[in-house]
Simulated scan of single mutants.
Amino acid sequence: MRAKSNVIVPAGVTLGALGVLGFSFSLPATRLAVAGLDAWFVAFGRAFVAGLLAIAYLALSRAPLPSVTQVRRLLIVALGIVVGFPLLTSLALTTQTSAHGAVVIAVLPMSTAIWAVLRASERPPVKFWLASGAGLLAVLAFVATGGGFSGSLSLADGYLLVAVVLCGLGYAEGGALSRELGGARTVCWALVVSLPVTIPISFYTADFSRADSVVWLSFAYVSLISMFLGFFAWYAGLAAGGVAKIGQIQLAQPVLTLMWSALVLSEPVGWPALATAAVVLVCVVLTQRSRVTSTTVATAQPVR
């Protein structure tokens, strides 16, 4: 049993880290995309494009149809990662910087851990909650003081915090479901069941009059990586290493996003953001040293 654990956990960490690396450029890319496209189109259009890719993948891999119960769970996944998070972050980034959003989104691992207890039957130890809670408090302090950017809590911060709640739900449900379907098929089916919503809204909000090459490249990134390929690794990692534990790797995402925001967007990254990012980075190390147990027994599926 120990030998098996030593194989699965590092694989989960590696896959989770690859997912986080892909997601780390999502906010800067979204910020660039909403500069020339409607925020609603960026949110639903990227899911539409990814949904078409998902259909092709499922057909080529001859994936069996999910059961009725699995479809219900896929709708929960879709609510979090296909609709809720993309839409609310797109709306937030029309008025807020990517750097500021990166630090607020650092609340996401705590949200994922809470949903992992409620939806994935995982039981993290006290040490885990203390480390994750410290990261959460650091982020909330950042938001409460305006993060050194705006000086007050804004509507954009509200969008981001609600996005975090919904995304954590999507991560936890999707990570648990990936133990049955596999990481790739879970995100693909979630995208497919969302198409009746994403297709009409995409067409209704389509306005390309202000879109240039940078806008389209950014939209391509959030469609192909943020909404599609990134989840192949992320959900496989959550299934292999545990939703709560692997989800904490995303505490490192603000550091990467702040770097992209400064290098690509030339956004100011003040000391409050850097200090908060440093705190959450320490917290993610501590959470990875905690052993998370589960009340259910499931076999991790390979990346498919």
Score class of each variant (00 low, 15 high):
L93P: 00
L137I: 13
A120F: 04
G84D: 09
L91H: 03
A59M: 13
G147T: 02
D38Y: 03
P124T: 02
F23S: 02
I114R: 02
L130Q: 10
Q70V: 11
P86C: 03
A120D: 10
F142E: 01
R73M: 15
L87C: 00
F85Y: 14
A56T: 14
V103S: 06
R31C: 06
A144I: 09
V139P: 10
V107M: 15
V126G: 02
S67A: 10
L91W: 03
L74A: 06
S132M: 03
A59Q: 13
L88W: 02
I76L: 15
L32E: 02
L137P: 05
G101W: 13
P125E: 00
P64F: 06
A35S: 15
A92V: 01
L140S: 05
A141R: 13
T95K: 10
A29Q: 10
T94S: 13
I81D: 00
W115P: 08
V49A: 13
H100M: 06
V83S: 02
R73P: 02
A113K: 11
A134I: 15
E122D: 11
L136E: 05
V71N: 10
W40K: 04
L58A: 04
P109Q: 02
V42A: 09
S26A: 14
V34N: 11
S98K: 11
W115C: 14
E122T: 01
F23P: 08
A92S: 12
S132Y: 05
S67M: 09
V49K: 12
H100K: 14
A92Q: 04
V34Y: 07
V77H: 10
A33V: 03
I76A: 14
L53R: 03
A113P: 14
V139K: 01
S67P: 07
V77C: 13
H100Q: 09
L91K: 04
R119T: 13
P66N: 12
L108R: 06
T89G: 06
F44H: 07
G36M: 10
